[in-house]
Design a protein around this nucleic acid. Sequence first.
DNA 1: ATTGACTTCCAAAACGTTTTGGAATAGAAT
DNA 2: ATTCTATTCCAAAACGTTTTGGAAGTCAAT
Lengths: 338, 338
Amino acid sequence: MAVTIKDIAKKVGRSVTTVSRAHNGYDDVSAATRELIEKTARELGYTPNTYAQRLQKQRSDTIGFIIPTFGPRFSDPFFSEFIAGIGNKASQLGFDVLVSTCAPGEEEMNVYRSKVEGKRVDGLIIIRTRQQDPRIQYLVQRGFPFVSFGRTRDNFDFPYVDEDSFYGMKLVVDHLCGQGHRRIACIAPPSDFNFGVDRLEGFIEGIRETGLSHHPKLIKIGDLTQRDGYRCTSELLDISEPPTAIVACNDLMAFGALRAVRERGLEVGRDIAVTGFDDIPMAEHADPPLTTVHQPIYQIGTMVCDMLIDLIVNSRLENSQIVLKPRLIIRQSSHPTV
Amino acid sequence: MAVTIKDIAKKVGRSVTTVSRAHNGYDDVSAATRELIEKTARELGYTPNTYAQRLQKQRSDTIGFIIPTFGPRFSDPFFSEFIAGIGNKASQLGFDVLVSTCAPGEEEMNVYRSKVEGKRVDGLIIIRTRQQDPRIQYLVQRGFPFVSFGRTRDNFDFPYVDEDSFYGMKLVVDHLCGQGHRRIACIAPPSDFNFGVDRLEGFIEGIRETGLSHHPKLIKIGDLTQRDGYRCTSELLDISEPPTAIVACNDLMAFGALRAVRERGLEVGRDIAVTGFDDIPMAEHADPPLTTVHQPIYQIGTMVCDMLIDLIVNSRLENSQIVLKPRLIIRQSSHPTV
DNA sequence: ATTGACTTCCAAAACGTTTTGGAATAGAAT
DNA sequence: ATTCTATTCCAAAACGTTTTGGAAGTCAAT
């Protein structure tokens, strides 16, 4: 049996109340007893029972994070970094992180409901927001604390951190135009993801602003995997007037593009430019190193976590809607002489 | 205020005992009352308070997983897949997963201790085992349930799943010898990881068995990152009689090697062979596709989780030490005509 | 009429903590 | 001597469940 507060109380000849209050730093405990209590607690190897505390305090000191897994062999490097950000910040603030996984779809809302209604978590972190996001609708409606990475097209008002994907894509297009490219293709994410729409719209707006005309043929939709980046690029290279630059909307698809290009005997950076989005660590080590839009995933993880805990503890949050201006990282995949 | 069992009891005019027993499927509740209770529970939107249950049952129905993060910008694709495996299996069995992060070192053991002694989790999953692993020593000593991915060189008896890295490396060396290579280099992991030692020893044994002599100069230690794979490969290519094949002990370092080789104007697969280990999804899409040893990370995650929960629930475990025979996946990085 | 078996129910204790609302004592001020 | 103020302590209730150890009622068999 584990050591409880009662054991300590018995040993030092005080009530459990006093022991509890000593532990929690109340000032109605004399210095002498406090020290005695602390000493015996250490000796006995006492650690408080979290569940009893939580039951009593009616708080779980836990935040939840439900990873949207797309198929079993998913392995988006994005997530491990994001989780590390959340995890480190949370433990720093004395919170636990409860991680679940669930594919978007039928079962998804049940998972969310059970976490919220079973009071297992004090708040949730949402990622990969959709244009109309049922998760957000549900949480807003219930008034349950959450912070999301990503906005939606709903008219709900809620706290989020997001990157200005629209702006980021314009940076990419501007850069490519500056390099003399005139036929620029885009491999866009599926439009159910909100960032997918942002990025595509940013691309189109970038093209428009530079005075180029926009060819629907030069836009493909990929599912964010390398495989699909490869497929889309192959298709793009097969059309009659193939593009001279390919803008992939995430790094993974850009990697697929690199391969497709090289398979045709073309040299990336010289014959054709390829760019990504996210700047995952591997982007720097791609061959050639990938021009991409930097997203500080780890920091975003810590920010989102920080905001959520702030919201939980203070029941309100200033500066609750943050949009980060991204940076363009120019490497050789779009600029051979860098 | 949330709905409790008391509210239901009051509403249906029964005791809380009966309501509780109805919920838990005891047979001393009449069909009529059971139905009534279920109906009102649904109407009132009742969900049990997990913390109260856990306090009472003295079980947390939670398993813990502490990610060893090596620096903030870590992003090993390995982890997201592994977590998905754990997460899906756990939720399938009604368990929660509590994720923390902690760099190996000073603080690490405190994190483990607090999880164990605070009774927040019923069991732990350990990964990236070291030769002498203090975490395992601690858990074995305390008799706390855990399952690890990876063995140690300690003399402790504990449940694990591991891949036969030794055998896997021999497969690689055999294959390369069969391709006619005679000067084969190895980029080994740091020796504090147990799998690092296994892999290096497998390499050396493979070389020995094929009757080649083993050149200490052809062995480099890399820190598992792409950057270090690049560095080690560059060094290897600079020696007077450079190797014709480079065996990296994980895929990430192999990617770095690919780049270093290509930068010298050599063609991977034709002029020089490169192999990896792990078969992360990206390996298939590398350029050229990477010959590597397959590790079913997702499945290993589910296996480990399954075993742990089995151990928790039944307090024992048959078949508790599993070593998987790996498969060699031959792709073009070592075999241009595949 | 008693006994026994079966069905259906429940009061109270327990899990380990925190919080509430004082009580007891000592010393200082009147 | 009385009142006031600090200081130090604590009993009991509460958080929401499950489990223990019966109790009460019904029915059939004796």
